[in-house]
Simulated scan of single mutants.
Amino acid sequence: MIAAIDRWGPFADGIDNAERLARLRALRAITHLCAGPRGERLATELERAERDVSRLPSALAEIAALAALDVGKCSPASPASTVQPERHS
């Protein structure tokens, strides 16, 4: 069972299989781009979860195992990805 706080992106309830697959693939691509070799285990688990949804908790465990800096880079909900820098005129 996935905790309520972890039900985001491909781990969300109520999404169809095609949407889950798209979200898993997007997160895997982001992981490759942002974490590089340090995210290889996560990328592998995300790929496995594409074929077997019972692997979703394992993918979440790999996200938790990433260094905080990598999680911040890879998470679409990261404050760093949503905060706009102030513009001075």
Rank of each mutant, 00 (worst) to 15 (best):
M1W: 05
M1V: 10
I2C: 08
I2Q: 00
A3H: 04
A3R: 03
A3M: 07
I5N: 13
I5A: 15
I5V: 05
D6C: 03
R7K: 15
W8R: 08
W8N: 03
G9E: 02
G9Q: 02
P10A: 11
P10K: 05
F11N: 04
F11Y: 15
A12S: 15
D13N: 11
D13W: 02
D13Q: 11
D13M: 07
D13P: 06
I15G: 02
N17K: 12
N17L: 11
E19F: 05
R20I: 04
L21R: 05
A22K: 12
A22I: 06
R23E: 11
L24D: 07
L24Q: 09
R25C: 03
A26D: 10
A26V: 09
A26S: 12
L27D: 09
L27K: 01
L27P: 00
R28I: 07
I30D: 08
I30S: 11
T31P: 01
H32C: 06
H32E: 09
L33G: 03
L33D: 08
C34H: 09
C34F: 06
G36Y: 11
P37L: 12
P37F: 04
R38H: 14
G39Q: 03
E40R: 13
L42R: 04
A43F: 08
A43S: 14
A43C: 10
T44P: 00
T44F: 14
E45A: 11
L46D: 05
L46G: 04
E47Q: 14
E50N: 05
R51Q: 12
V53A: 15
S54D: 13
R55K: 11
L56I: 14
L56F: 01
L56K: 04
L56G: 07
P57L: 07
P57N: 04
S58I: 03
A59G: 01
A59T: 01
A59R: 00
L60V: 05
L60I: 07
L60K: 01
A61S: 01
I63K: 02
L66E: 03
A67I: 02
D70L: 11
V71M: 05
G72H: 04
G72K: 02
K73Q: 12
C74P: 00
A77S: 06
S78Q: 03
S78T: 00
P79A: 13
P79K: 03
P79W: 10
S81W: 08
T82Q: 08
E86M: 07
E86D: 01
R87K: 06
R87L: 15
R87I: 10
H88Y: 13
S89Y: 12
